[in-house]
Amino acid sequence: MAEKVYRTLSSSGRAQRFFRQIWYAISHDRVGMIGFVILAVIVVLSVISPAVFPVDVESDPSSILQGPSAQHILGTDHLGRDIWCQIANGGRELLVLSFVTAVLGMLIGVLIGAFSAVVGGRFDEIMLFLADVWLSIPRFPLLVVFSAFFTLNNTTLALVLAILSWAGIFRTVRSEVLSLKERDYIEVAFMQGLSLGHIVIKEILPNMMGFLAVNFTLLMRSTIYSQVGLVFLGLLPLEQNWGVMINLAWTQGVIYNPRTILYLLAPTVMICLLILSLVWIGKALEDVFNPSLRK
């Protein structure tokens, strides 16, 4: 017991230290804790709901667009299906897609960014210029235009979004690596004649994990925005998620029927909660990994 109490962060393993720091960040920040709880609830719902709250596969013409009742706590949709079950199942796809996209996007951005900052010189200048150019191309209209040329589904969307978001991550990672590069231990690593790959992966990346975790939540957030936006415009196949529910509620004219406004309101609130939880967790992480931002 005593041993555990006096164990410092630096004496534990690297991965352990990373997760301990994240847990410290979240549990010592009220808002971060709320965000974490919301996210946990959504994750748990996504995992258990196919078994516990299965989505009605059959329509029930006798109970179309009903208000909340004991049987259907959030009412029913235009096909008589229970809305709560759709809400419980609707987060999974958003979570998985945004997670995959964020992993891919971070990989691309971090590799190019770290490499460019370490190599420096003309290559770095050109990459920075290209990133600036790329950032001034409006992303959402570009996605809409793309949808006319390629059939977008969730797999291709993850790939396209990851590739499109390289520039933003590239810029932040590059500036972070540039500041790390000035530190002594990196200089020592260079003097030891270690390979460039070793320096990037073993020396620089582990010290950026917190910074990367923050950017990860930001990337997940922008992915959710793009996916829900595209679904709302009807440019993605309609599967089971909150964006699709908004789209259907909208096209079925739910706003003209105030009794069933929950059909539109519930998924909207859920998306807000998901995004807010990511923002709050990101903020809590930022506070710990960037002590200079603390008040």
């Binding site: 957030r221 959710i224 709302f232 706003i255 539109l264 909207t268 998306i271 995004i275 807010l276 923002v279």
Partner: peptide, 18 residues
């Protein structure tokens, strides 16, 4: 934090539905 089109839906509900 929240996307602009969700703000639009909220505004629509507040001004045009309730």
């Amino acid at each position: 934090a929240i996307p602009d089109f969700l703000i639009a839906i909220f505004l629509l509900l507040i001004f045009g539905v309730f």
